[in-house]
Every structure is written in C-alpha cells, then in structure tokens.
C-alpha cells in the first residue's frame, strides 16, 4: 500500500511537470503579445518586455519560470499591473472553492438519495421520476440551467438575487446550476450499483439472519453500493471545475473560472500559465486522493499487489 501511494505520488508529480511544460510552450506559441492592444511606443514596449523577462530566449525563460514555480512563485500578471498571480489566485480561490464545495455536497446528497429511492422502487413511479431528473440533468448544459434559473427566479419572479456572491441567497442558484449535472451522474451510478448489489448472496444472508429491511438496506446494500461512486469523484471534481468557468460568468462570481476565461481573452501569459498549472495540479491531486481513498474504502481491492 505504501509503495503504491509513493508510486502514485511520483506519477502525479510528473504529470504536473509535463502539464506545466506543455502549457508554458503552448502559451508562448500564442500569436500576438500581451502589449499589442496598448498604444505604446516601441521603446516602451521593449522596456516592458525586458521588465517581464519576455526578451530572453525561450529556454532561458523556461528555466527561470520553472525555478520560480518550484519556489511557489508564478510571477506577475501582465494585465493587472503589479499584482502577483499568486495573490490573484489567493483572492479568487475562496469564492470558487466555496461554490465547488457547496455544489459537491448538494449533488452528492441529493444524487445519492435519488439513486437509492430509484433502486428501492425499481420500475415503479419513483424510479421513473428519479431517472427522468437524472437524464435531464445529464443532457442540459450547466450554462442553460444557469441562465434559465437566473431568468425565472431572479428576473421574472424576483425571488432570489440575480447575480453576485454575497449572502446565502446569492449562492443558491449558482450551486444548483453547477451541481445538477453531477447530481444526475451520481444518481444514475448509485441506482445501477444498488440494483447490482441487491442480487448478491450477502444480501440474502443478511435477510436470512433476520435483519430488518432498513438494516439490510442501510448496512449492507447502501454501504456496498456506494463504492463505484467513490471512483467517479475525480472526474466529478474536473466537471465541477470546468463548470465554474461558465457558472461564474453567468452569475458574476469573482472566482478563478472567470479570471481564467478573461486571462485567455486578454492573452495574459502568466495568468493563463499560472491558472492552468493550478487547476491541473489541483485535479491531479484530487485524483491521487481518490485513488488512495478507494484502496482504503474497498477491502476487496488490494491496490498494492
């Protein structure tokens, strides 16, 4: 197990390094330079290029960037003058993290409940209702859900604040729009996995032992059925993260996703680089945790073998 964890850790590190390298060269291959839209004389431009180290040859820039990255320094944003990328991330991360965690909790609880209800009422009304919700959740993109609820609850009925990120009421619509797709995924997965577990021998044994139906469901069925859901937590984290790009845009939330989209449109090299590496490292780390968690959760799997 220890060996497995160490191995996975190194693979994760290499992944982040490759991602950083790739992103660095891809971003440098971008047409245009970050100052092309500003009205400045060639001398000032040259000075600015020099100031940001953009006049040096590419390999030198790469080595500088990587050494700084190891120290945890991602340089300055080229757009927001005198603001470190680190500082911008630190500023914007809390809102995104809060949105992400809220959506995760929302989608996991509601998704699991829907999945369990559907499986326990297999081929009955509740099953169909849950699955209709699940299919709709998978099929309707988050930006459509976001815009729809914003229009209905914010503009039309004026029940909830239209945008921004201040009180709890502000968080309801973004959380719902971001979480719905994930919710659907979890509900479907939980339903299938519950239905598979029902036929297992240990359920028969549990029933034969005289356990009450609730005990059988909670202790044996749900606990075993929940395992496959753990494996998709990695992809779910990725889906939520990319979802924030549009949801933050729609609801004007000052988070990382919005910064990312803006920095791409502004050709802000250091911001794009910094955020990509940050997102990438974050997801790689999440996958690493999920892999290890899976090894602990499922005693039938000896991941270390």
């Amino acid at each position: 197990m220890i060996r497995y964890i160490i191995k996975r850790f190194f693979v994760s590190l290499i992944t982040v390094w490759i991602l950083a390298t790739l992103t660095f060269f891809l971003v440098r291959a971008l047409p245009g330079d970050p100052f092309s839209s500003e009205k400045i004389t060639p001398e000032i431009k040259a000075n600015m290029m020099k100031y940001y180290g953009l006049d040096k040859p590419l390999p030198v820039q790469y080595v500088t960037y990587m050494t700084n990255l190891l120290k945890g320094d991602m340089g300055y944003s080229l757009r927001y003058k005198n603001r470190e990328v680190n500082a911008i991330i630190a500023d914007a991360f809390p809102a995104s993290a809060e949105l992400g965690i809220r959506s995760l909790i929302f989608s996991i609880t509601v998704g699991l409940i829907l999945g369990i209800i559907a499986a326990l009422n297999h081929n009955k009304g509740w099953d169909y209702i849950s699955m209709i919700i699940a299919v709709i959740g998978v099929s309707v993109p988050s930006f459509v859900v976001g815009a729809l609820v914003q229009y209905l609850f914010g503009i039309h009925w004026k029940i909830l604040p239209v945008a921004q990120w201040k009180s709890f009421a502000h968080t309801i619509m973004p959380t719902f729009s971001l979480g719905l797709g994930t919710l659907a995924l979890i509900a479907r997965l939980m339903r299938t996995s519950m239905l598979e577990v029902v036929g297992q021998d240990y359920i028969k044994t549990a029933k034969a032992k005289g356990l009450s139906p609730i005990q059988v469901t909670v202790k044996h069925q749900i606990r075993n059925a929940i395992l496959p859901v753990v494996t998709v937590l990695g992809p779910i984290a990725a889906a939520l993260l990319t979802g924030t790009f549009v949801v933050e845009q729609i609801f004007a939330i000052p988070g990382l996703g919005r910064h990312y989209v803006l920095s791409i449109q502004n050709l802000d090299y250091t911001m794009v680089l910094g955020l990509t590496i940050f997102f990438g490292a974050f997801l790689v780390f999440m996958n690493f945790l999920v892999d290890i968690a899976y090894g602990f959760v499922d005693p039938r799997i000896r991941v270390g073998k």
Binding site: T15, I18, G280, V284
Partner: peptide, 8 residues
C-alpha cells in the same frame, strides 16, 4: 500521464 491532465 496525459489522461490526468483535465481535458477541457
């Protein structure tokens, strides 16, 4: 390694 990089 490549699959660990988020596709989007």
């Amino acid at each position: 390694v490549m699959i660990a990089i988020p596709g989007m």
